[in-house]
């Protein structure tokens, strides 16, 4: 067989391979990609805050049942998390700003729930929302922002919707001074959904939120 006829033969063979294989492949789906990215961002945020965040509860459906610190959901295999972190430096947190923002929330009493939202995870697709779970009851939602500008969070608890606007800053005292608070009532099943707007500046901010029992 000369090169030209081999070329034609291979074109046919590869076209058949492509057609046959396409029908055999079942994509995990774009939703699975979204879930993976969200999970990695949450884990990156949680691991970056380390021991500083006393109570971190991230994830839809997580319902706190005790006053103890909430565990971080770790459903992603560690290998992929580690390599993703090393392969995507953009996903890493500015540690200093994270520490400042967490410290600015102040000492949290037992029963509080808090989380840190960092970097461009403020604008994840398709759901730029985070759930904070806590026992049903009356709480104050405290919002702190490290970086520039202001950030307005929309908080939904059941049918109640409130907003809180925090002024961002780069020192602990200034972030604490700019922190916003809003009362929220959590009813059974006890979840507050916090939405943060997607803006170009969001990627450079670190936002912390805490549900503090009243």
């Amino acid at each position: 067989m000369n090169d030209l006829s081999t070329d034609q033969t291979l074109r046919t063979a590869f076209a058949e391979l492509r057609a046959a294989e396409r029908s055999r492949i079942r994509p995990p789906g774009a939703d699975a990609a979204h879930r993976t990215v969200r999970r990695r961002r949450r884990l990156a945020a949680a691991s970056a805050t380390g021991g500083l965040t006393a109570l971190v509860a991230i994830g839809a459906g997580y319902l706190a049942t005790t006053g103890e610190p909430a565990p971080v959901r770790a459903t992603t295999d560690p290998a992929s998390v580690t390599t993703e972190a090393s392969a995507a430096p953009g996903a890493r947190l500015p540690q200093e700003l994270t520490n400042i923002t967490v410290n600015a929330l102040g000492k949290l009493p037992p029963g509080s729930r808090s989380l840190v939202i960092a970097g461009d995870s403020v604008s994840p697709a398709p759901r730029p929302s985070i759930e904070l779970a806590a026992k049903p009851g009356r709480f104050v939602l405290r919002l702190a922002c490290g970086g520039d500008g202001t950030v307005t969070a929309t908080v939904r608890t059941g049918s109640q919707v409130t907003t809180a606007t925090a002024r961002c800053a780069t020192t602990t005292d200034a972030v604490a001074a700019g922190a916003a608070e809003t009362p929220v009532v959590i009813a059974d099943p006890g979840t507050a959904v916090i939405n943060l707007p997607s803006t170009p500046a969001a990627g450079s901010r670190v936002v912390s939120a805490a549900l503090i029992p009243r």
Binding site: P27, G29, A30, A33, A60, G61, S123, A125, P126, R127, P128, S129, E131, T154, R156, T157, G158, S159, V161, A187, D188, P189, T191, V193, N195, P197, S198
Partner: peptide, 24 residues
């Protein structure tokens, strides 16, 4: 909305839809 349903206060960014199409 039900209390435990995530209800977006902000619509998903337009690039979300474009990613879905791109992926598919």
């Amino acid at each position: 909305p039900a209390a435990d349903v995530i209800d977006l206060a902000v619509p998903p960014p337009p690039e979300t839809a474009s990613f879905e199409r791109f992926y598919a």
